[in-house]
Amino acid sequence: MIQSLADGILVGAILSLGAIGLTMVMHILRFANFSHAELLSIGAYSALVFDALFSGILPILANKIGPFSMTWALTLSMFCAMGVTGLSAMLIDRFVFKRIREKGDELSMVFASFGVAMIIRNVLGLIFGLKSQLYSNDIVFAVMISSDPMLLIKPDQVFVLLAALLIMLVLHFVLSRTTFGYALRAVAENPSLAEVSGIRLSRVIALVWIIGGCLAAAAGVFYGLNNHINPVIGRDLVLPIFAATIVGGIGSVYGAVLGGFIVGIAANMALLVLPSGYSPAVPFMIILALLLVRPHGLFGEPQT
């Protein structure tokens, strides 16, 4: 019970990071982006490449940080991966979504994101192989926090949770204290007024993709640290991340954070009563339950 809660919180942190970017894109560009979860894969794999690169150049970087399996090389790689993923997200928009957007059909965007997801997922599979990989082959043992009730926690899990919370805190300050944050909220509320108020829409949209990509990359690396890295990360996470945005209400960044934790915890708790094979279906049940009770999510506003 307590164990499920702890594991759920950790998964929740990863889902939150993914959902923040997705909810911003869904709100500002008004389409369900089925390829968002693939950004987590791009992040996870680019960190893998950078990690090998940095550890090769400076072996000292490959030393672990304290009790974590995270190394300095991987930390550095994570930031590089965030850059690469943010840039990829922006370029995908520039070359695919922007051009379809200009033709003015929202449903075609949803459709195109299906195709983009398919391409990214399989190109990653082609480059890196279909087998699962790990950042570190060393086994890090979980620490027993308490024996009754049983609670085992890996040091990495604590690290991931703290790092995710730190990233969300930084984002919170950007959104609530900077004029860039206001600009973002202004574009989400009323794009044409934002434009005549001196905001260059194309620049804000590009920045939204970059931020979404950065957060997704961090989520991807954290996911890889706790599980393993394979080309179907996106396929496995797309529904939980969608569930987190819908629970939080589309467009609400704070809702997405809370939604991530709710979905993470609920999915782990559900496995106390359901056989574990059913875990991929749980996010959908959460979506259905929410749509019945509160169709616009916890923090969302009705939209047309």
Partner: peptide, 25 residues
């Protein structure tokens, strides 16, 4: 400067933030 007919302020922002937004540069 242009004042549109309707929806000419950002409701979700505070009054000060509305002004800070147009003056951010």
């Amino acid at each position: 400067a242009y004042v549109p007919q309707s929806d000419n302020i950002f409701r979700a922002l505070t009054i000060r933030q509305n002004l800070e937004l147009v003056l951010r540069k």
